[in-house]
Amino acid sequence: MTTDVGGIAADRLKSFVERIERLEEEKRGLSEDIKEVYAESKGTGFDNKIIRQIIRLRKMDKADRQEQRAILELYAEALGMED
């Protein structure tokens, strides 16, 4: 039986809140796992700043990566930073 409080189905609301809480806990666990992988990669000599950049780039489609690189090169050239 659903309990209505002020027009709100309390059982349904409680179900949503509990699901969100479980997912948040899973997210915290995954964040800890990711931190451990970064620590491991750093321990073997890899640069985590570069790994994070690579991960960001891999999430982009090819056209967006190409556009970003072109704009970066253009800005660097405008600032006299190109070799």
Rank of each mutant, 00 (worst) to 15 (best):
28 R>E: 13
32 E>M: 11
22 R>K: 02
24 E>C: 10
33 D>C: 12
33 D>P: 07
29 G>S: 07
32 E>L: 13
30 L>S: 11
21 E>R: 03
25 E>C: 04
36 E>I: 12
22 R>W: 01
35 K>S: 14
42 K>N: 09
22 R>G: 03
20 I>Q: 08
31 S>P: 03
31 S>L: 15
26 E>N: 04
35 K>L: 10
25 E>T: 12
21 E>V: 00
19 R>A: 04
44 T>H: 08
41 S>A: 14
30 L>E: 14
21 E>W: 00
44 T>G: 05
40 E>L: 13
34 I>P: 04
18 E>W: 01
41 S>V: 09
27 K>T: 15
25 E>M: 02
30 L>H: 08
46 F>A: 11
18 E>D: 08
19 R>Y: 04
37 V>K: 10
39 A>C: 06
40 E>S: 13
42 K>Y: 09
48 N>P: 01
18 E>F: 02
20 I>A: 11
31 S>V: 15
39 A>M: 11
26 E>K: 03
20 I>S: 10
36 E>M: 14
37 V>N: 06
27 K>N: 15
24 E>Y: 10
30 L>M: 13
27 K>C: 15
34 I>F: 11
21 E>P: 00
21 E>Y: 00
39 A>I: 06
21 E>N: 00
45 G>F: 00
39 A>L: 11
20 I>L: 11
44 T>D: 03
43 G>A: 09
29 G>K: 07
35 K>N: 14
43 G>V: 07
33 D>K: 13
31 S>G: 14
33 D>T: 12
27 K>M: 15
44 T>Y: 06
48 N>F: 00
46 F>S: 10
38 Y>E: 04
22 R>P: 00
22 R>I: 00
42 K>G: 08
48 N>C: 02
34 I>M: 12
24 E>K: 14
33 D>M: 14
25 E>F: 01
28 R>G: 10
38 Y>F: 09
18 E>L: 06
25 E>G: 09
32 E>T: 12
45 G>Q: 02
36 E>W: 09
27 K>Y: 15
23 L>Q: 01
41 S>E: 11
38 Y>I: 03
35 K>Y: 07
23 L>N: 00
42 K>P: 01
45 G>R: 01
41 S>I: 07
24 E>M: 06
47 D>L: 04
40 E>M: 10
45 G>W: 02
20 I>R: 11
20 I>K: 09
